[in-house]
Simulated assay, not measured.
Amino acid sequence: MSHTAHIRSHRKPRRSASKVAMRAGVAGGVLSTLAVAGASGSANAAEPVTQTLELPTLTADLATQVAQSADATQQAAANYALQAERDTAAAKAAKQAKADLADAKQKAEAKRKAAEEAARKKAAERASRSTERTTLSTSAGTGTSVGTSTGSSTATGSAAAVISFVKAQIGKAYVSGATGPSAYDCSGLVQTAFKQVGISLPRVSQDQSTAGTQVSLSNLQPGDILYWGGAGSAYHVAVYVGDGMFVGAQNPSSGVVEKPLSYDPPSGAVRVL
């Protein structure tokens, strides 16, 4: 007998093949069950995963829609603001156009009134001249001689100097406001002529027509100042030079001329010499 025969073997007893096979089958079944359960669990767990994966896509679409809606809102607000600006500008333009129209009407009315007033004055002047012509014609018909009936036709002294001066200006130009030496207006010629003999006359026709003593047109003397229009409101003056003639700065087209009284009969006369 071996000296180790009495010692129990340290080896594990062998399992029978049937038990191993059974256990392997059980283990395989368990593993299969676990695999099926795992697969089933995986399949069941896949549904929330699929939903979770789709959520970002839905969120991105929603964000895009929100952004588009915000853009549309902003664009609508901009359109409303632009329309408001246009409406304000249109209202302002309409208001300005109304004011301009009112101003234009007011100016047109003022021009119309001025034209009517000018026409009225011209008509009054023509009527006055017509009246004076009628008076002179009547005087001539009754034998009254204008300028020669009682007064002297020959200028002497200061009157001669005035007449000599105005005749020397015949042919010079008529310029409104001019007092010589190359051009005159009607009152400028009269004022400058009397200044030659030391007499200072007012500058304008209205004042010159009342500067001296009023005399009748039938009793004129050389050197008298003739005026057209009313005394104090005369619109033209000239110098009587005798023999039914006068010298005056008539208008821009004729300048300084010598004309007979019948050419344009005066309204009255004053004597300062």
Score class of each variant (00 low, 15 high):
residue 50 T to Q: 08
residue 161 A to G: 08
residue 267 S to A: 00
residue 43 A to C: 01
residue 172 K to A: 11
residue 157 G to W: 08
residue 182 S to T: 15
residue 88 T to A: 15
residue 264 D to P: 02
residue 46 A to D: 03
residue 67 A to Y: 07
residue 96 Q to M: 13
residue 208 Q to E: 03
residue 187 S to V: 11
residue 232 G to R: 05
residue 209 S to V: 01
residue 108 A to K: 10
residue 258 E to Q: 03
residue 93 A to C: 11
residue 6 H to F: 11
residue 185 D to W: 05
residue 255 G to W: 02
residue 192 T to A: 09
residue 233 S to M: 04
residue 215 V to Y: 01
residue 226 L to Y: 03
residue 212 G to H: 03
residue 92 K to R: 15
residue 61 D to Y: 06
residue 56 P to G: 06
residue 156 T to Q: 08
residue 35 A to L: 01
residue 8 R to T: 09
residue 116 E to P: 05
residue 184 Y to H: 08
residue 22 M to C: 04
residue 20 V to E: 05
residue 226 L to P: 04
residue 201 L to F: 02
residue 15 R to Y: 04
residue 164 S to D: 14
residue 41 G to E: 01
residue 230 G to H: 02
residue 201 L to N: 03
residue 158 S to H: 09
residue 75 Q to S: 07
residue 56 P to F: 05
residue 139 S to E: 12
residue 159 A to W: 10
residue 59 T to E: 10
residue 158 S to T: 15
residue 139 S to I: 11
residue 260 P to A: 00
residue 223 G to C: 04
residue 82 L to R: 05
residue 33 T to I: 00
residue 140 A to C: 09
residue 141 G to P: 08
residue 69 S to Y: 13
residue 28 G to I: 00
residue 47 E to H: 01
residue 253 S to K: 10
residue 159 A to T: 12
residue 26 V to K: 01
residue 140 A to R: 14
residue 27 A to F: 03
residue 86 R to F: 12
residue 227 Y to T: 03
